[in-house]
Design a protein around this nucleic acid. Sequence first.
RNA 1: GCCCCCAUCGUCUAGCCUGGCCCAGGACAUCAGCUUUUCAUGCUGAAGACAGGGGUUCGAAUCCCCUUGGGGGUACCA
Length: 524
Amino acid sequence: MADGTETIVTRFAPSPTGYLHIGGARTALFNWAMARRHGKNGKFLLRMEDTDRARSSTEAEQSILEDLAWLGLDWDNEPDVPRQSDPDRLKEYQQKIDQLKAADRAYDHGDGNGAVVFKMPDHDIAFDDIVRGTVTTPAGQIEDFVIQKADGFPTFHLAVVVDDADMGVTHVIRGTDHLTNTSKHIALQQALDLPTPTYAHMSLTVNPDGSKLGKRDKAKAARKAADEWAKINGQEKLLTWLCDAPQRKKQDRQLVEAFLNKENDDVTIAQFVGEALGIHLPEINVRDFRASGYLTDTLVNFLGLLGWNPGGDIEDFGPTPLPFLADHWDIKRLVKADAKFDRDKLASFNADRIKAMPTEKLIDAVWGHEYIRLALHNRFQRGRNDPMFATFCATYQERAKTLNEFEEQGRFLLIEDEDVTYAFDTKNVKKVMLKGEPNGFDALKELKDLLTDLPTEGFGTKTHELIQKLSEDRGTNMGKLAQPLRVAVSGSTVTPPIDATLDILGKQKTLDRIDNCLAQQPQQ
RNA sequence: GCCCCCAUCGUCUAGCCUGGCCCAGGACAUCAGCUUUUCAUGCUGAAGACAGGGGUUCGAAUCCCCUUGGGGGUACCA
C-alpha cells in the first residue's frame, strides 16, 4: 500500500455534455485529494470522455475546466487534457478492438451495422474494492456488451480501459453507479492483458427525498411554484402572468405551456418560470452554486464531508480546506451509504465562512460577485474603496448566508428612494406606524426636523445617539423612534442597526425617504 | 423480472474492521432561555437515532442469519 514512495495516479474523466455536476465535483475532489496526499509521488489527471459525439461540446469542456479551477483543483496534465475523440486515440482504440476480434474475444454485432461486441468470459470476475470489499460477479451474469458503436467510435467501456492503462492510472475513485461497469472493465483488461487499477466505489449524493440529484429538480421546483401560484391566483391567469408581464423578458408561450405540462424539463424555461415567480431553483451544478454566492472553500469543505470525513468530530477544514483535505485524506474512510444533500447545512457552512472572512477579502468577494455586481456598482459610485461600501459589507457579513444575500437583504439600501414601497397593510408596519399614541407618523415628523439639523458627517451614528438620548429622557423604548425610521427608509420593520443603516444611506436619502413615507400616509 | 449494494438522531455523520471506555458523541435543522431599538449574530440549554426479528457471547450499535426498507445496474449514455 501507500508507503510514501509508491506512485499514485488518479484521474477525473467527465463527459463534456454540460456544466460540472456537484456530484462530479465531489468525485474530482476525492481523486485530487488521493493524488495530493502522496505529494510528489501523486498525480491527478484529467480526461474528456467525449465518445458521445451528439452530446459533447467544447463549450461544456471549457466550463468544466473553469469550474474545477474555481474549486481550486489543479491537474498534472495541464494544458493538454486528452480527449477520447482525438484521432490518435481513436487509432489506438481501433487497434485494441482489432486485437480483441483477432483473439476471438469480440465479434461483429448481429445487425450488421458495424458495431462490435465484446464477449464476456465464462469465468467469475472478482476484485477487491476499497469501499465494498471483495466484489464477485458470477460468470454469465453480465451480457456481452458493445465496445464499438455503429459510428465507429468506441463506447465508454473500451475507451476507459485503454486510457486508464495508457495514463498509468493506479486508483479509480468513482460512484457506485459504476460498480457493475467495473466487472466489465476488468474483463476487458484481462482480455487485453492490461493492469487492473485499485477501485473505490463511493456512495452517491442524492436529494433530500432520496431521488437522484439532477437537472429535473429545477423543473420540478419551478412547476411546484407555478402550481402554488395558480392555486392562489387562478389557473387561467398563470400563463398570462408568466408570459405577458411587460417588465419581464419574453418567453415563448407555447414552450412555457409545454414545460408546465411536463412535456420537457428545459432548464432555461425552468429558470424563467422561477424568476417570474420569485423563487430560487435548487442548485445542481457547480455553476449554480457559484451564481448563488457560495464560496469555493465552503463547497470544498462541504463536499469533503459528503461520504467522507477525517474522523473524530472534525467538520471544519479550517481556513484552507484543500490542503487540509490533502493532508488528512484516507481512502479507507470513504462512507458506504448514500448521502442526502443538505442545503441548509451548506448554507450554514457558507454563513460561517463569510463571518470568518477578513474584511478586505470579503469586500473583494462581494464587489466582484457577478450576480450582484450591477446593483452594487450603481450604488457605490466611489467604487470598491467607498467607505460606505465597507460599512455595507461589514453590516451584512453577520447576516448573509450567501454573497447574493448581501444584495437581497440590503436591497433597500441599493435602490432609488422613489422605489421604496411601504407595506402599510402588513401587520408589523401597521403596528409601528398607525397604532399607539403618538403613532409612527407623528414620531417621524418630529424626527425629521431633528435630523435635518444633524451634520452630514457621521449621520447614522449621530442619529443613533440622538434617539438614544431622546428615549432616555422620555423613559421610553428606543423602538418608539427607531422603528418608524426603519419603515421610512426601508419600507419594512426589519433592517440592520439604525446607525449603520443610515451611515450607508446618507443624510440626504434618509430625509428624502422620510418625506416620501410621510406623503404616503394612509387615510385612517 | 434478474443481479448487486446499503441501513446510527429529521439530515450529514463519529463509533463498527480489532465486541465492554456508548443507557451512543459532534454538526445542520428544530424548540426554549439570555443578549437586543427591529432582524440577525453570539452564548446557554432541551428534544431527538443504533430499522425489526433471531442467533453467537459473560457482554453487541459493533460478529452471523432472516425480514423489511432504500439505492444502483440491467443502453450502439457515460
